[in-house]
Design a binder for these strands. Structure first.
Length: 718
DNA sequence: GAGCACTGC
């Protein structure tokens, strides 16, 4: 867990007092001493030499590092000191999450006694803190994938460390497949040159003998260029090293001890019919009977969290005054960050925190002070049905690995206890690990990226876990219908190439390409930026009415797309009037205030603005015309219809809709501005199954536009 | 009448 890096810093706490010049010096000296001491005390420190030897002797190494081993912060420094980044090459370390990349890089820069961005830097979307002198670079795995589009051999890197590989995000899985190929190609290019200098005749053999078609395509380009071999290190926190080792042809795996306090696990005797009630009882049992220490409860979503919060508060009122020293903190991703941060603030002495969390607290956020974990054993997970294009959010049992991860949250600072609200035999029945994301998501983007990197045979691509054939075929079909692929299933030029360059869902990339023809690129740019982020509107339960009124100011009778544009433009207008002469921090501050007044999630809007400026640069570079359709909303809606024709639906009796492409019966999501209007024909962006099949982000269109604008699809249908 | 978690040159 990269949070090893996060937690390390809590060990060397710096008092917030004032220092005179001298004491600052002393402080920084003693701080450096402390860092050194800390580094030496990490479990990984004692095996530095051995690890370096292993890396020298093996081009691929699997490292199983338990929580708290220090692998994420220390190994790159060991490699640097051992000379692995000679000749200006870089040691790259990938992380699945932005926060981890940033915090670990900052920590390592401090340990090295340098400014972050110099020898040690990080690069994440929207934020590149590296320079020509950067030798240890932390980054998100998705970002390295994007880099591979420009530099398929990742030629600047001498070592790439893939951290948290056990999480098996789509990005990690695709990256592993790619790195496997890059490594083969680079070592061959190297050997090719060696061979070439002695015996020139040999080079043809290498190509012919190679079985892996991807490597052949890489190798072809590789000829004439010489790359030093690439060292690959896969780091995983779980014990499934076997999977990675087998994938990399029996690669060597080493194990590094962690430093984690023991956590006692308790199970219930019987299955609990109502886990919320069981959680409630357990909270109070711990509160009344156990020693000091905060409680972390894993729940599946906002609704559960809010209802447990209410129940705890009610029950608390029935307790005697001196037993009421319990403070509740909800935390989930869509909660505004100010409210998320509350969980970290110290509370009055003698009080106990109860943190009600979604699985945001499993890996993304590390909350200090947790001694007790309550784990009902469920998670709300997204699954994807490629045939129906249907996403579902369903509550499912967690995996053993997840249960382990959750209980580990109690042992960060001292011995802890974990209460699993199910019997032990139920635990035994759980899956070992969570299904890799690549087996349960829409593959269109992955395929587009691979095609752009010259991987044409997707079904034959060497994934660590192959997605189902039907999922691949379905996505290929979608890309073909969007015009990104030719009849021969190759990336089309220019449309497919343009789409691959944009860091967006392929459907949104296509919408931009079309919008430049429809002369409404300005509007579409705002739309796809807003659609690419989490929900823009924020409606807390207690202020639902106010939030609704606020939303009305922006809402458009045409639909949600125009509504999102209205929000974006309103925020822009508000800023334009005030931002003159203000620094970025002040601008952020007044924008947050505006968001709060208008019940807008400021994190989402901020994100959308970042996406907007990034994509604008891309489309300008691509030479697309950034025009506005002005008041001609008809033009814009026609463009939406042309772009999202695969997601069109027509009204049936009783206000339900039938999706053209799959025939599914769907309903308009209650958050849509068209929820009450129920127009005859719509296009939508998302189809999600919760209690019903809901479509979200909707615009009303004319049915006839579909046959006119997407005849390749609708001529056959009608 | 309702939103798990991440992420992108």
């Amino acid at each position: 867990m990269a949070q090893g890096g996060l937690n390390i810093s809590s060990g060397s706490h710096r008092p917030n007092g004032k220092f005179s010049k001298d004491s600052t010096k002393v402080d920084s000296f003693s701080r450096r001493q402390k860092i050194l001491q800390h580094r030496k005390s990490l479990p990984i420190a004692s095996v530095e030499r051995r690890l370096i030897e292993e890396v020298r002797n093996n081009d691929i190494l699997i490292i199983v590092g338990e929580t708290g081993s220090g692998k994420t912060t220390q190994l790159p420094q060991f490699l640097f000191n051992a000379g692995f980044s000679r000749d200006g090459t870089i040691i790259g370390v990938t992380q699945p999450r932005r926060v981890a990349a940033v915090t670990v890089a900052k920590r390592v820069a401090e340990e090295c006694g340098v400014e972050v961005g110099q020898k040690v830097g990080y690069s994440i979307r929207f934020e590149d803190v590296t320079s020509s002198s950067t030798r240890i670079k932390y980054m998100t795995d998705g970002l390295l994938l994007r880099e591979a589009l420009l530099d398929p051999y990742l030629s600047r890197y001498s070592v790439i460390i893939v951290d948290e590989a056990h999480e098996r995000t789509v990005h990690t899985d695709v990256l592993l497949g790619l790195l496997k190929n890059v490594q083969i190609a680079r070592s061959k290019s190297f050997n090719y040159h060696l061979d070439n200098e002695s015996k020139k005749a040999k080079n043809g053999m290498l190509v012919e003998k190679e079985k892996d078609p991807q490597s052949i395509s890489f190798l072809k380009e590789c000829q004439g260029k010489k790359f030093p071999p690439l060292k690959l290190i896969i780091m995983s926190a779980s014990l499934d090293a076997r999977i990675f080792s087998e994938y990399f042809g029996g690669a060597r795996a080493v194990h590094i001890q962690g430093r984690q306090f023991p956590v006692d696990i308790f199970y219930t005797y019987h299955a609990e019919p109502d886990y919320l009630d069981a959680a409630l009882i357990t909270i109070f049992q711990i509160h009344m009977e156990e020693g000091p220490g905060d409680i972390l409860v894993f729940l599946t979503g906002q609704e559960e969290i809010e209802s447990v919060e209410r129940l705890v508060k009610e029950r608390l009122q029935k307790l005697p005054e001196n037993n009421r020293k319990l403070v509740i903190f909800p935390i989930f991703s869509s909660l505004p960050s100010e409210q998320q941060m509350r969980v970290f603030a110290p509370i009055q002495a003698g009080f106990r925190k109860v943190i009600l969390a979604t699985n945001i607290a499993e890996t993304s956020v590390t909350i200090p002070g947790i001694k007790y974990v309550i784990d009902p054993g469920f998670v709300k997970a997204r699954t994807y049905d490629p045939n129906k294009g249907l996403e579902s959010l369903v509550v499912v049992p967690i995996s053993k690995a997840q249960a382990l991860q959750r209980s580990g949250r109690a042992g960060r600072e001292g011995p802890g206890k974990c209460f699993r609200l199910y019997p032990e035999f139920e635990f035994e029945k759980l899956e070992d690990s969570t299904k890799p994301e690549i087996k349960r998501c829409n593959l269109s983007n992955v395929i587009l990226q691979l095609k752009a990197m010259g991987v044409d045979d997707i079904i034959g691509f060497d994934f660590i876990d192959k997605p189902s054939r039907s999922a691949i075929v379905k996505s290929l079909e979608q890309l073909y219908l969007l015009g990104a692929l030719t009849d021969e299933c190759k990336l089309s030029d220019p449309v497919g190439c343009q789409m691959a360059r944009l860091p967006l869902d392929p459907v949104y990339s296509k919408a931009l390409v079309l919008a430049s023809e429809f002369k409404c690129l300005e509007e579409m740019l705002i739309t796809v930026a807003m659609l690419s982020v989490e929900s823009i509107f924020y409606a807390p339960r207690e202020k639902l009415e106010e939030a609704r009124t606020a939303m009305k100011c922006f809402s458009s009778p045409e639909g949600d797309h125009q509504t999102l544009i209205n929000v974006y433009r309103a925020s822009d207008e508000f800023l334009e009037k005030r931002k003159l002469g203000l620094g970025q921090e002040k601008i952020d501050k007044i924008l947050r205030k505006w968001c709060k007044e208008n019940f807008i999630n400021s994190r989402s809007l901020r994100h959308a603005r970042d996406v907007h400026s990034q994509i604008r640069e891309h489309v300008e570079q691509m030479g697309l015309r950034l025009e506005s359709c002005g008041d001609d909303m008809l033009q814009f809606r026609r463009c939406l219809a042309a772009s999202f024709f695969l997601n069109a639906a027509i009204k049936q009796h009783e206000g339900t809709y039938r999706a053209f492409s799959t025939g599914q019966v769907v309903q308009i999501h209650p958050s849509s501005v068209l929820f009450r209007t129920k127009p005859d024909c719509i296009v939508f962006n998302e189809l999600v199954q919760t209690n019903h099949k809901y479509v979200r982000n909707i615009t009303r269109i004319d049915y006839l536009w579909l046959t006119e604008l997407a005849p390749q699809y609708y001529a056959m249908q009608s």
